[in-house]
Each structure stands twice: as C-alpha cells, then as structure tokens.
C-alpha cells in the first residue's frame, strides 16, 4: 500500500496520490490527521509531483488539513503542481488560500506536464 505521508525535519509532507477523488480521500485524511495530532504539525507540504487527477473532493481534503494544522498555528504550501492541478486550484480559488511553489523535483517519471 502506498504511503501518503512522511515527517521531514518537523514538516509533514503529504504525497498526494496519482488520482485524488472521494474514494482516495478517506485514507489520506486519516493518515495525515494521525500525524498532525501526534506531532502537533505546524508546517504542512502538499506534494503534487505524482498527481494527474483531482476533483472537488480533493479541495475538501486540503482545506480540512489546513484547518487542522491551524489549531497549532501552522502553515501549508502546495508544491509541484502540473497544469491540470493548477487549473483545479484556480477554479476553486484554492490558490488564494495556499501558496504554491515549484521545487523542480519530481517524485517519479512520467509526470505528464511539460
């Protein structure tokens, strides 16, 4: 089973799966919230290197996790969005809530976007 979350130097990195829909959302939420609570996570990184599809269920997941780290005074960023995910961020207005960054690193090949 693919691992979604990893603690890295006090930050929680969430590797968003290839397709983030309502079906995938449940396990990701559970895994992330366990770590957020256990480590009182303040810095959250959503890594979209591997993500090709996301619908509005994904928006709910992201906003929900941002709210949860908000209890600990935390901040979130989203990194390595392909054009499709950027479009979803734009249409939903999520880009005004979460800063997006490019690290130039892809988790695996075949990311699709150029």
């Amino acid at each position: 089973m693919e691992k979604y979350c990893e603690m890295q130097a006090g930050r929680l990195v969430i590797y968003v799966p290839r397709e983030l829909d309502h079906h995938e959302a449940g396990r990701l939420k559970m895994e992330a919230d366990l770590l957020i609570d256990a480590y009182h996570v303040k810095n959250l990184v959503f890594d979209f290197s591997n993500t090709e599809f996301m619908d509005s269920s994904g928006i709910g997941v992201i906003i929900g996790r941002c709210r949860n780290i908000g209890y600990y005074g935390g901040e979130a960023v989203a990194q390595n969005l392909n054009d499709r995910v950027k479009k979803i961020f734009r249409v939903s207005g999520l880009h005004t809530l979460i800063p997006t960054v490019e690290t130039g690193k892809n988790r695996q090949k075949g990311n699709g976007s150029i």
Partner: peptide
C-alpha cells in the same frame, strides 16, 4: 462533517 467542499456543481458548471 465529511469535509465536502460544496463545489461539485460549481466544478461541473466550470468544466
């Protein structure tokens, strides 16, 4: 409570 964003129809209309 299920963290639905309430954006489903808005997405359908946008796309």
């Amino acid at each position: 409570e299920l963290e639905r964003s309430g954006m489903g129809f808005a997405f359908m209309e946008a796309f």
